[in-house]
């Protein structure tokens, strides 16, 4: 499968293909980068720590992608569980580990200057917890709900961007909102 197809692949397909196709994991990373940083930021309230933890979580996800089982959990839940685990570890140890990054061969930690961190925090904060929640939706519904509900773009404009009809976008928004409601009802 060439790179151009990855955006259409499901999360499970991306993770299953990761060991053979590195670009698949890059596509998976792109889908969840903001969501994972946002998730961690809402718990640590420290953007630097959140970025560090997110990096460690994605490295751990890369290392264990082949062990992901789609029949047990959604990829989003699996990833957020890893992120939560990294957060818990860091609280217990009092520092963010770099073990997973070393394990996959990442030796040099990226240093972000204050300006970059502020920019990242601003982007992630503006979307609030919504991103974390939306991340659990299928990609097509996520985009539709995000565009319509958070960005308040007209249906017609979203349809043009996504090259489909306004009816389909309405349908995705409707289903996305319904899925969110359902997930709430199913939560303990």
């Amino acid at each position: 499968m060439s790179e151009v197809h990855w955006p259409q692949a499901s999360d499970a397909e991306l993770l299953a293909a990761t060991a053979a196709e590195p670009d698949a994991f890059a596509a998976f990373y792109d889908r969840y980068e903001t969501a994972v940083i946002g998730y961690l930021l809402n718990r640590t309230h420290d953007i630097e720590v959140s970025v560090d933890l997110a990096s460690e979580a994605f490295a751990a996800a890369l290392a264990s992608a082949s062990r992901y089982r789609p029949d047990r959990d959604s990829a989003a839940s699996w990833l957020f569980t890893i992120a939560q685990s990294k957060l818990t570890d860091s609280l217990r140890r009092g520092r963010v580990e770099a073990r997973a990054r070393r394990r996959v061969g990442i030796r040099d930690a990226v240093q972000y200057d204050t300006e970059s961190l502020d920019r990242i925090e601003s982007i992630v904060s503006q979307s609030g917890w919504a991103i974390e929640l939306l991340a659990r939706l299928p990609a097509d519904q996520r985009e539709a709900v995000r565009s319509r509900v958070l960005d308040e773009r007209p249906y017609e404009e979203i349809a043009r961007t996504l090259q489909t009809s306004p009816l389909v976008i309405r349908q995705r928004v409707s289903r996305g909102l319904r899925s969110l409601r359902r997930s709430l009802n199913e939560s303990p």
Partner: peptide
Amino acid sequence: LLSEFREQLLEAATDRARSPRVSGRSGAT
């Protein structure tokens, strides 16, 4: 947001796909 880290991650994924240790798993996967 973290473009440098993304590059590192992609590089790591590429190395893992190429490495003999992982290639068996890669083929299996």
